[in-house]
Design a protein around this nucleic acid. Structure first.
Length: 264
DNA sequence: TTCCATGTTCCGCA
DNA sequence: TTGCGGAACATGGA
């Protein structure tokens, strides 16, 4: 589930496995995932280079390939992930892009659906500006007042507003449900109608939920027992009050929430 | 078989 | 003009 916590784990994974290793070759197995760069150019730029550092903004992962000048950008769509391995019998099932290092290991980008994206950008900052992405949800310089201002100025349902990457980057359908549950806020309330107390809770719970998920390595089996995510299915029960969880479509996505803990 | 799914983008309407 | 809601996209599992 590649939302902010998942992509943060991918960043840690890429950092611990794939930095400072010479790239021997690059294979593009599904050219549809390339965005704004040709297969030929991508290979030419990566071959002989190495990943020098990794960064993340929202759901995007960046790997530095030429000091301060060029970065590989990866987006994982709904189903993407990375796998570092040795030996071709261990290739993941829907490999779209493969980097092979001179040490014999490979880094694969797997995406069952092809909704992800791979490109080359000169700097993450310019990319973020071009895509009009909002501040990263875990940016330590994102202060409560700026956060509150963003949500006071939008009229959409708060769930939709949280998922809008132009407002805050990194939150998707799953984690927006969790953040609203932990905040005790109904997902259909209009963003601009939230009171100051609710905005305060939303801000602090957003940080708490995302940080907790990263600490749990984005693995729902390790989430705090108060999280609603593991109960986010047809016959789920609220982990706090045992009320039946409700399901409804908001802004075109399925929302799960507790009608008792999250009053309108 | 049909519906639904963690992603973003595009279109039409207010 | 801008923002919002819904459809579209690709693929496979329930």
């Amino acid at each position: 589930m590649p939302e902010l916590p998942d992509v943060e784990i991918f960043k840690q994974y890429l950092t611990s496995t794939s930095l400072h290793k010479e790239i021997r070759s690059v294979e593009v197995l599904t050219s549809e995932v390339l965005e704004g760069v040709s297969d030929r150019k991508l290979k030419a730029r990566l071959k002989g280079a190495e990943f020098m550092s990794a960064r993340r903004h929202g759901k995007y992962l960046f790997a530095e390939t030429a000091e301060g000048k060029e970065w590989l950008v990866l987006h994982f769509g709904m189903t993407g992930f990375l796998k570092y391995f040795k030996g071709h019998d261990k290739d993941p099932p829907h490999e779209r892009f493969l980097v092979s290092f001179t040490n014999g290991f490979h880094l694969a980008y797997d995406s069952q659906r092809k909704l992800g994206e791979i490109g080359l950008v000169d700097t993450p900052e310019r990319f973020i500006k071009e895509r009009q992405l909002g501040p990263d949800a875990l940016d330590p310089t994102l202060e409560r007042d700026r956060f509150a201002e963003i949500f006071r100025n939008t009229r959409a349902a708060i769930k939709s507003a949280l998922m809008n990457q132009k407002h805050i980057a990194g939150i998707g359908n799953i984690y927006s449900d969790e953040i609203l549950f932990q905040s005790g806020i109904h997902p259909e309330i209009r963003s601009g109608e939230l009171g100051e107390n609710e905005l305060n809770r939303l801000y602090s719970q957003m940080k708490y939920v995302l940080e907790s998920a990263i600490e749990a390595r984005a693995d729902p089996d390790r989430f705090p027992s108060t999280f609603i995510i593991p109960h986010r299915h047809g016959d789920g029960i609220c982990p706090k009050c045992k009320t039946d969880i409700e399901k409804r479509t908001i802004g075109g996505r399925t929302a799960y929430y507790c009608p008792h803990c999250q009053k309108r």
